[in-house]
């Protein structure tokens, strides 16, 4: 378990983080969400024992990170925003170096190497110099160095930064694989990335912890308006609207517009009523072409939380 208690960090007289307190349980994948400058990187660097907090305590697996950072570093794999690479080394030499630095013997590194290369899909370029690799591959090498010593905790700071869409999907799949064996902390300001990979979120804004919980917990704000968009096939616009308006939880049905060979209705709801909407549509014998529980749910939550912080500052 990672436990941070009243952790704060000042750069000179300027507060970059905290005081913040949170816990991360074994096996969880937790996302640090926040705008640029929110304190995500500072928080992760403190957890990785790269920085010391100005105040507060951090415990990783029961070990005090301030009193015994040496021991904590053995348990953590860290991929910073810019992967810490030596461009004059080959991938395999670099990973050997990283493994040995983390206390592995040459034999242990050799045994682990093929597994790491396979997980990170680096086998084909293992003999290449890092300086010749594309950005996506370099990011993978960064992940490989973080997991070579099989740490319990994996900290990834903006792992998809600068990647193209294909590389983002590949990285997301890689993170998904890593979740099986590690407690993972990911920071990002990209909402979809966080929502697709994390079990729980910690929302940071201007150094403060603005919210924590699962996506739905964060979104379940009293009176929160959620949006569902349904696309139906049919000609009787009024009848469709009546069916939708009668559903429990639907507070408003907007005027439909044509989309994808049907009519799209935007529904404002005061609870998650996807099941009721789909059931009502089927029972009314309408053809459902698409149902979209607004992807902006997290976005709305994020804007609400961060907007609140901005307003208060």
């Amino acid at each position: 378990m990672i436990r941070a208690t009243n952790v704060s960090k000042f750069y000179g007289g300027k507060r970059a983080l905290g005081p913040v307190s949170f816990e991360i349980n074994p096996g969880e994948t937790v996302g640090f969400l926040g705008l640029n400058g929110a304190g995500k990187t500072t928080a992760l660097r403190i957890l990785a024992c790269d920085l010391r907090p100005s105040n507060g305590t951090v415990e990783v697996g029961g070990v005090d990170a301030v009193a015994d950072p040496h021991e904590v570093r053995k348990r953590i794999g860290f991929l910073p925003e810019n992967p810490p690479l030596y461009t004059d080394m080959t991938v395999i030499d670099y990973l050997k170096f990283a493994g040995e630095l983390r206390g592995m013997t040459a034999t242990q590194v050799k045994k682990r190497m093929s597994e790491v290369l396979e997980v990170t899909d680096l086998t084909d370029v293992s003999g290449d110099f890092i300086g010749t690799l594309s950005h996506g591959y370099r990011q993978r090498v960064g992940v490989a160095q973080a997991i070579i010593h099989q740490p319990k905790f994996l900290i990834l700071d903006e792992p998809t930064r600068g990647l193209d869409p294909v590389q983002i999907v590949e990285m997301r799949n890689l993170i998904h694989d890593l979740k099986q064996n590690h407690t993972v902390l990911i920071s990002s300001h990209i909402l979809t990335e966080i929502s697709q990979t994390c079990d729980r979120l910690l929302v940071l804004g201007k150094g403060e912890l603005l919210g924590k919980g699962t996506e739905s917990e964060l979104a379940s704000h009293k009176g929160e308006i959620r949006a569902i968009t349904v696309t139906l096939r049919g000609a009787d616009k009024a009848a469709m609207k009546t069916v939708l308006a009668a559903i429990d939880g639907v507070t408003k049905v907007a005027e439909p517009y044509e989309q994808g060979g049907g009519l799209s209705f935007s529904l404002s709801t005061n609870k998650d009523c996807r099941a009721e909407v789909s059931r009502a549509i089927v029972e009314a014998k309408l053809d459902l072409l698409k149902l979209d529980y607004s992807r902006s749910e997290l976005e709305n939550t994020f804007i609400r939380l961060v907007g609140g912080a901005d307003a208060s500052n």
């Binding site: 990785a48 024992c49 790269d50 040496h70 021991e71 570093r73 053995k74 953590i76 860290f78 910073p80 810019n82 810490p84 990283a98 630095l101 983390r102 206390g103 160095q145």
Partner: peptide, 8 residues
């Protein structure tokens, strides 16, 4: 440098 500073 981060590789060195976050290693034991």
């Amino acid at each position: 440098m981060v590789l060195l500073s976050t290693s034991p």
